[in-house]
Simulated assay, not measured.
Amino acid sequence: MSGDPSLVRGPLEGYHHETYVLALPGGTRAVKVREPRAEILWFDRRCFRAEEELLTALRPHISRVPDVVDVGGMPLQTFIEGRTLGELRRPGRRVPESACEQILDLFGETVRVTPDMLDAERRCEDRDRAEDGDSDGFLERLIVFVEEQVYAKNSPVFAGLFHALGLSEESFGLLRKHVLGLRGRSFGLLHADLHRENLIVDPAGRLWAIDWELAMLGDPLYDLATHLYLMRYPADQERRVAVGWRRAVERCAPGAANGWEEDLPPLLDFKRAQSVFTDVIRVALSLREEGGFDRAALPAAAGRLRRILAAAARPLGLVEVPSRAQIMAALIRWHEELGSAPGERSVPTASGGY
């Protein structure tokens, strides 16, 4: 496409896709060319048919998202030059106030985008869409997705490990009891994956939101909960962002923050519980290497899983969180049982996320 290999950069870092940046003729802009990695486990609920189609529909409504250009009959996203917010401030570190203000402006823009404003084909069926304002119904559909597409779908390989860590079908009933009972809020557009690596700061200091492939329409407070969970702000800044979010969305869509202070904690608990099932699979697979098991990485992996389980103990109803030694033993046992199964099962590469 370029006619000159020197105009191509990549592959870029990233789990979901193999991505290259191609400079277009004239050198005025660049585009991303990417292909999904076929061997990767995907733990994501996708609501729009094509990200490029969605981005085209968003251009009149969202200030700074990538353009989509036609290159040889292919719709490709323009590449945003700059550095990710994660490069500038690692998770756990304070985010510059100028970036925080622009993030809040983005929330204000997205909450104004309603389903009737988007000319982009949705891939989810009608039965998977909650009625506008039914925040409980929206969250229930997310729980069902984790229950069916993450837990049940992967149970043939991971059931023994799930059970050893105290996770079972009953976990989802306990989770529902803990998190459902939300106030109703009018639905809007959600980015649903707004973390530091999906926020680009350009040379002029402007913040751009990229990677909209997990976008959905639903409860705007869920977008805040996902953002806070993924960003890992310092505690005082997290609170200021939450309060700023309320002001921004109420200014742009009155009523969108209804009951936010009461409902934010259960939504954050859902995010913690949701991550348990995906992270158990990811961590277990990360220890498997060609021809063996990475025992040197086992203590750190078990420590990580224990922290994840402890954070989600309350919403999942875990009476006792397994010790690191117990988690290590469970991981070793899972690996040995998997390896000794007749015609050892094919296990894909770990990646993906919410």
Rank of each mutant, 00 (worst) to 15 (best):
R232A: 10
A38W: 12
G218F: 12
E344L: 12
R9S: 14
P11K: 11
G27A: 11
L228E: 03
R232T: 04
A99E: 05
G73C: 09
F162C: 07
G26N: 09
T349Y: 12
G14E: 01
P66G: 07
N258F: 14
V150R: 02
G353A: 09
P220Q: 06
D132Y: 13
M1Y: 14
V144Q: 13
D4W: 15
A164R: 10
L54C: 09
H195V: 08
I332T: 04
E39D: 15
S275Y: 09
A120T: 08
D202R: 03
R29K: 15
E121S: 11
D294C: 07
W245V: 06
L104N: 01
G353Y: 08
R93W: 13
G3H: 12
R306T: 07
V179F: 02
L309W: 06
T278L: 11
R288Q: 09
L298S: 07
S168T: 05
V71T: 12
A215E: 05
S135W: 05
N154I: 00
F107L: 02
G82H: 03
S346P: 09
G86H: 08
V319W: 05
A256N: 11
P11F: 12
L305D: 08
L175D: 02
L161T: 02
P25E: 10
R282V: 02
I281P: 05
R246G: 01
A120E: 06
